[in-house]
């Protein structure tokens, strides 16, 4: 082939990739796309990923394969994504933990969020609700804070583990409300709810979906929700923000996001981010996610990077306080 034509083609390609990022990658994806999920098949991060990748595979015209690599709160999935990185067809989804707090909680996660991970877009967020047994007679946030403030560690609360979102949220809440509660770690929300209903512990922050069926059955009361706006799955639950003397900007949410290994072509990331945003605007997708307790939260890669930075700082301060105790 004529060298000058090749050269011109290459130049044209280079210009296109600057001017028209989406079309420059016309040959992408050229092989099946792999998405690593750090949780087992059937878990809520896995199902979220499946809802998205199902639609994504139609749009990309290539199969999108979920690779479940569960372990260490999602950290293993990211490690495995990084091991297979480099072909431009390897991605992952993650919850907030490995992106924000894992570096503080674990000896060594084996990766550095800023250097190794390229955010693509947030997928969805989930607030937590504060729940107590209805037998306790506590029906609103004010009487809960009064009961908790009676003395140090007057009340116990359950979480899904040391350093989990439920634990850190409770500590953030306690600090803002000026109370101190005794932390009892469990491994799942189901265990926490069982223990609350059995009267063994007093309270717990948990996913709305874990609590609402017990509220319906009349065995549990939810006192407040940690989102900044009323939440679709539990619209009647009052916000914690601005309630019972807490500040108006109180907000604590778990989130789920789509990520790529650092070094992935910017154009590919922009394309994925745009495709996923469109997928998430489908009302049917929104409804399915809401049914599982997740509110879609599409955005750009920069939005996700900002969220990572803000949450890392906020939870970092909470962890500092826990460690100081």
């Amino acid at each position: 082939m004529n060298t000058s034509i090749t050269w011109r083609l290459a130049l044209a390609g280079a210009i296109c990739s600057v001017v028209l990022p989406a079309t420059a990658q016309a040959d992408w994806p050229s092989q099946p796309v792999r998405v690593f999920v750090g949780f087992p098949a059937g878990s809520s991060p896995d199902v979220l990923a499946r809802i998205v990748t199902e639609a994504l595979s139609e749009r990309l015209g290539q199969p999108v394969v979920i690779e479940n690599r569960p372990g260490a709160g999602g950290v293993i999935g990211i490690q495995q994504m990084l091991v297979s990185a480099g072909d431009g067809h390897t991605f992952g989804t993650t919850i907030n933990g490995p992106m924000t707090t894992a570096q503080r909680m674990m000896d060594d996660t084996g990766f550095n969020v800023a250097e190794d991970i390229a955010p693509v877009t947030l997928l969805a967020t989930s607030p937590l609700v504060l729940a107590v047994a209805s037998a306790s007679g506590i029906e609103d946030l004010e009487s809960f804070i009064a009961a908790a403030g009676a003395e140090v560690d007057a009340l116990t609360y359950g979480s899904v583990g040391q350093g989990s979102g439920a634990h850190l949220t409770a500590e953030l809440f306690a600090a803002e409300a000026g109370v101190s509660m005794l932390h009892i770690p469990f491994t799942s929300y189901a265990e926490v709810t069982t223990s609350i209903i059995g009267g063994e512990i007093n309270a717990g922050f948990m996913a709305p979906s874990a609590a609402m069926s017990f509220v319906e059955a009349g065995t549990m009361n939810v006192l407040g929700i940690t989102s900044s706006e009323p939440f679709g799955q539990a619209p009647d639950v009052p916000l914690i923000a601005g309630n019972a003397g807490l500040s108006d900007d109180f907000r604590a949410e778990l989130w789920n996001g789509f990520i790529a290994p650092a070094g992935t072509d910017e154009a590919i990331i922009a394309r994925l981010s745009a495709e996923i945003t469109e997928i998430l605007s489908d009302p049917e997708v929104q409804e399915r996610m809401l049914g599982m307790g997740w509110q879609v939260a599409p955005g750009t890669a920069d939005d996700m990077a900002d969220r990572i930075a803000a949450d890392t700082e906020m939870w970092g301060a909470v962890i500092d306080r826990i460690e100081a105790q």
């Binding site: 087992p40 098949a41 059937g42 499946r50 017990f214």
Partner: peptide, 21 residues
């Protein structure tokens, strides 16, 4: 873990296991 997988299958369909089941 297998039971957890089955629970997941229910939750995909928006069926939340609980006392009202």
């Amino acid at each position: 873990p297998i039971m957890a997988l089955m629970l997941g299958a229910l939750i995909i369909h928006g069926v939340q296991p609980g006392p009202m089941m």
